[in-house]
Amino acid sequence: MTMTTTQAIITIAAVVLGTMATRFIPFIIFPEGKNPPEFVKYLGTVLPYAAIGLLVIYCLKDVPASSNHGLPEAIATLFIVWIHKWKKNTLLSIGGGTVLYMILVQTVFR
């Protein structure tokens, strides 16, 4: 099923408005010079860690079902933690962990 030109324009406009709203509304609600509520400050400190924890749990949720008892996942996870503690570079941690995991599952733990 294809969209008509009108439907495509409406869809693009809705996406643009949604993106702009999520970018601009926080600056309208909390202008410069006005302190945000303590609850918002608290969420700003805890939500990044909660999101990372959620992503880790989501990535590792199917590990017991794997045939290698989670060994490549455990090795890659420990490597990610180690390299991040050592270099403190998020992209290096993610990239290095992904490369190591792919090497492990494609060569070592076939």
Rank of each mutant, 00 (worst) to 15 (best):
P26T: 02
T6R: 07
G18M: 05
T107K: 09
F27P: 00
I103G: 11
T11Q: 12
Y101R: 05
L91G: 14
W86P: 03
T107S: 12
S66T: 15
V105A: 03
V56N: 06
K41P: 07
F109G: 14
H84R: 02
F27K: 05
A8F: 06
L17P: 00
I103R: 05
V16N: 02
T77P: 15
K85A: 10
F24E: 01
L47S: 14
H84F: 15
A14C: 10
A13D: 04
V63G: 11
S66P: 15
I80P: 06
H69C: 13
C59S: 14
Y101C: 06
F79C: 10
L100V: 03
A74R: 01
P37M: 02
G97I: 02
G97C: 02
D62V: 09
I52H: 07
I103K: 05
F24L: 06
K88P: 01
F109M: 10
F30W: 04
P26Y: 04
L100Q: 05
P72C: 11
P26E: 07
D62F: 15
F39A: 11
G70E: 10
F27T: 01
W82V: 07
T6M: 06
P64V: 09
E38M: 03
H69M: 14
T2Y: 14
V63D: 04
I80N: 12
P48G: 03
T90L: 09
M20F: 11
G33T: 00
F27M: 03
H69I: 10
M20A: 08
Q7L: 06
I29D: 00
Y42P: 13
L54K: 15
Q7E: 07
V15A: 12
N35P: 14
